[in-house]
Design a protein around this nucleic acid. Structure first.
Length: 324
DNA sequence: CTCCGGTGTG
DNA sequence: CACACAGGAG
């Protein structure tokens, strides 16, 4: 899916139109006031993650962001280091066998991300002269790149002034500036407008702001147990002032259990394929696959869905292997 | 809104 | 055991 209609362009970004002039100005004033303590905190507490090295290419930043989708940074670090050494740019990744790409993805989870990353690499290599676009619409049109990832690349790799909105930033901004929890679900117009209202006007400062707010959400302003005593925003945080109302509340109803789901079964199959012995020549025979899961109907359904997703290939009718 | 992995943490 | 985690696509 590469057509431009799959993702909507950013709209409703004008804070005045969504929040009203008064609330917008109040948020801007508070944001300006909190910037200094936040940046001071960032200077001291920012984690020394490898992709924060100034020499990291925009492609390297993109790889990091894709790997980090729904995955903790600490788990990403070793994968990113090995990945960038093996495939330093889009052109290198584009030429790799899909089976190698999926195997290298290892236990990061959501292996479709690996597939999309390679599709993305092929587009960038073939259509963009191996150079990642510096344009929101072009980025968001790439496979596996949504609003968050496009914004993160523009802000962190290119230094453009754009509001980055992820789960951490939503939580921190909603708490500090609105005094309430960010409820689950899609990002609302209010949250988007708020992010734009408090984003520093200066481009360089805006990139630091995005990173610092995100880092604060990861290390201090966490979902369940925020360390308000250690927070650089405590002097102005509306959520703290209100007594942390409804701390940890979510609108989304509890997720389906993992045990017994297709996700677990698919994961087991992918793991078996990654860990196949050498003498298997990359092929998992159906007889061996059926020992991975008791419910044969579910197993076969999952193999079929993995095949549909391009994550496996079915050979000789019912054996399975990673795609070439 | 649902599906899509795997792991650290309380 | 429950739950959150630098989301994206159908």
């Amino acid at each position: 899916m590469t057509n431009a209609t799959k993702k909507t362009k950013r709209r409703h970004d004008d804070p005045d139109a969504v929040l009203g002039v008064t609330r917008t100005r109040a948020a801007q004033r508070l944001g300006a006031r909190l910037r200094r303590p936040l940046f001071a905190w960032w200077d001291v507490h920012a984690r020394a993650l490898p992709w924060r090295d100034a020499r990291t290419s925009p492609w390297g930043v993109l790889v990091c962001e894709i790997m980090s989708q729904q995955t903790q940074m600490s788990r990403v670090v070793p994968y990113w280091n090995a990945w960038m050494e093996r495939w330093p740019d889009a052109a290198a990744l584009a030429d790799a066998p899909r089976a190698d790409v999926l195997a290298a993805w290892g236990r990061l989870g959501y292996p479709r991300r690996a597939l999309r990353l390679q599709e993305c690499a092929r587009v960038v290599a073939a259509e963009c002269r191996d150079e990642l676009p510096r344009d929101y619409d072009a980025l968001v049109a790439l496979p596996g790149v949504g609003d968050y990832t496009a914004s993160a690349v523009l802000s962190f790799a290119y230094g453009e002034r754009i509001a980055v909105i992820d789960t951490n930033i939503r939580r921190v901004l909603s708490r500090a500036f609105l005094g309430e929890e960010s409820l689950g679900g899609a990002t609302g117009a209010v949250e988007r407008a708020l992010a734009n209202a408090v984003l520093p006007r200066d481009a360089a400062a805006s990139a630091t702001w995005n990173q610092a707010v995100m880092e604060l959400g990861a290390l201090v302003c966490t979902a369940k147990q925020p360390a308000c005593a250690d927070c650089p925003l405590r002097g102005g945080c509306l959520f703290l002032a209100a007594g942390l109302p409804h701390l940890g509340e979510r609108r989304t109803r509890p997720r389906q259990r993992f045990a017994g789901t297709d996700r677990q079964v698919r994961g087991i199959i992918m793991q078996a394929l990654r860990d196949l012995p050498e003498d298997a020549h990359g092929v998992l025979r159906h007889e061996d696959a059926s020992r991975l899961w008791k419910d044969t109907a579910q197993l076969d359904r999952c193999i079929a869905s993995l095949d549909d997703d391009g994550l496996v290939e079915i050979v000789s009718g019912h054996d399975v292997r990673l795609p070439a």
